[in-house]
């Protein structure tokens, strides 16, 4: 009785130890690379205080990559990676089969959205021509009179038509004029999940990492298995390393 009982308990211990050994083996033998993230909202009810991570490679602009294929939800995909000058990696392509001779990470397709981009040509009241890239420009037609609120770098904060009832006051510089030309570019964006989207931190610290506006300072070190599956090896922030 005693021996059998101990054997069954050992089975549980082996299962737990197996998780630890497996993960260490993965990190030690896997190819390590750095990925940049984008900020998202925190907390995962199931396991306490989590940083939910969204990577730059979490959404892939299929149009820019020149990919015509469409991917079904939950379909396994291989995302091809290339190194940036700063040492982090970016996605260059995506396929259903692992590419040979390239670095790739395995993920699952989540859903596809359509991203619309606008390029607007505006002739202001002094007759000068401006090219602007507003993030939304749906209801405006050629020949409309429009006001653009700009930020200091010349990016569009918001825009409104003269005929709109909603007329905000611009806090920074602004441009007014007639719309000469509107070009719309639509491209499909694929959302991908890699299983490395959460990072546990102690109570309270999660918000700090997520609220650090300059997410370029936060980099994740990922260990890749041969089949492209990744696991988090460490989170690097402001020169500190969290494992």
């Amino acid at each position: 009785m005693r021996k059998k009982f101990i054997l069954l308990i050992l089975l549980q211990v082996v299962l737990l130890a197996g998780m630890i050994v497996y993960r260490h083996y993965w990190v030690i033998t896997g190819k390590k690379l750095l990925l940049r993230i984008e900020p998202v909202d925190p907390r995962d009810i199931f396991r306490g205080d989590y940083v939910r991570l969204r990577y730059e490679i979490s959404s892939l602009n299929l149009g820019e990559m020149g990919i015509e294929e469409s991917f079904q939800p939950r379909e396994r995909v291989y995302v091809h990676l290339e190194q940036n000058p700063d040492g982090t990696y970016r996605a260059t392509s995506v396929s259903r089969e692992p590419p040979s001779g390239k670095i790739f990470i395995q993920g699952r397709a989540r859903y596809t959205t359509t991203l619309t981009k606008w390029e607007v040509t505006l002739i202001d009241d002094e007759g000068q021509t401006h090219f602007l890239k507003p993030s939304w420009f749906g209801s405006v037609k050629k020949g409309d009179r429009v006001t653009f609120c700009l930020d200091n770098q010349g990016g569009v904060v918001e825009s409104f038509k003269e005929s709109d009832s909603y007329k905000p006051t611009c806090k920074g510089p602004s441009l007014q004029g007639l719309i000469e030309e509107i070009q719309t570019f639509k491209s499909k964006v694929l959302e991908v999940e890699y299983g490395i989207e959460s990072f546990f931190v102690e109570e309270g610290k999660g918000k700090r990492i997520e609220s650090s506006r300059d997410t370029k300072k936060v980099v994740l070190e990922i260990a890749l298995r041969k089949d492209g599956r990744g696991t988090i090896a460490a989170l690097l922030m402001e020169g500190k390393r969290f494992e």
Binding site: L8, I9, L11, Q12, L15, L16, M19, I20, R23, F46, R47, G48, G195, I196, E197, S198, F199, F200, R229, T231, I232
Partner: peptide
């Protein structure tokens, strides 16, 4: 199971943890 998953940021597929739990307890 869940604490180890937490320590090592393993979140590949959460239901697996429950399956592992069941598999460990069932023989006992």
């Amino acid at each position: 199971i869940f604490l180890i998953a937490q320590i090592y940021h393993l979140k590949a597929h959460q239901p697996n943890g429950l399956l592992l739990w069941g598999a460990g307890v069932l023989p006992l």
